[in-house]
Amino acid sequence: MRATEPSEKTVRYTAAFFDNEHDLMAIAAEARLRGFEIQDVFSPYPIHGMDRAVGLERSRLGWIAFAAGALGLISAILLQVWTSAYDWPLNVGGKPFNSFPLFVPVMFELTVLFSGLISIGVLFMMNRLWIFSKKKIFEGVTDDHFVLVLKQRDASFDAEKAARLFKKYRAIKVMEGDKFV
C-alpha cells in the first residue's frame, strides 16, 4: 500500500505468516510499538483498522478522486455546451440550445465515471498492483494466509526479539529474503 523508495529494493526482509486477521492486527501494532519497521502487510481481504495498526498515513486517493470528478464535470459541461450550442446547434423540442437542466444527467454521469475510473487506476498504480508490476506475492496470501513483512534495514534489527514476537502471536511460518520488490 505504501510507496517505496528505490533504495528499499534491496532491503532484506523477514516475513511472518499468520492464520487469522486478529493476530496480524495485534502483531502489527505491537511490532510498531517495539520499534520494528513494517514494510507491508498482506491479507486476502481488506481489514478494518489495519491502516491504523500499521501506522499508515492518510491516503491521498481522496484528493485524486475529487480532482478526477471535477475534471469529469468540466469535460461534461464543455462537451455539451460546445456540441449543442456552438458546433452543431439542433432544435430539440423547442428548448434553447444552451439549456442547462438538460446537461445535468451527463454532468453527473461523467463526474462519476471519471472519478471512479481514474481513482481505481491510480489506486492500482499507488499500491503497485498494476499489470506490469513485478511485486512479490507470498504463497497463500490471496487465500487464507496473513503476512507481516518487517524490514531489516540496519543493525538495530533484533532477530531474537522478532522471533519472540512471532511466537507470541502464533506465527505459522517465518521466512527471510532479499529484494522485497
Partner: peptide, 15 residues
Amino acid sequence: AYMWISQYLLIYYAN
C-alpha cells in the same frame, strides 16, 4: 438532489 432534478427534468422535457 437526484430526485429534485429527476422531477424537474421530466417536467421540463415534456412541457
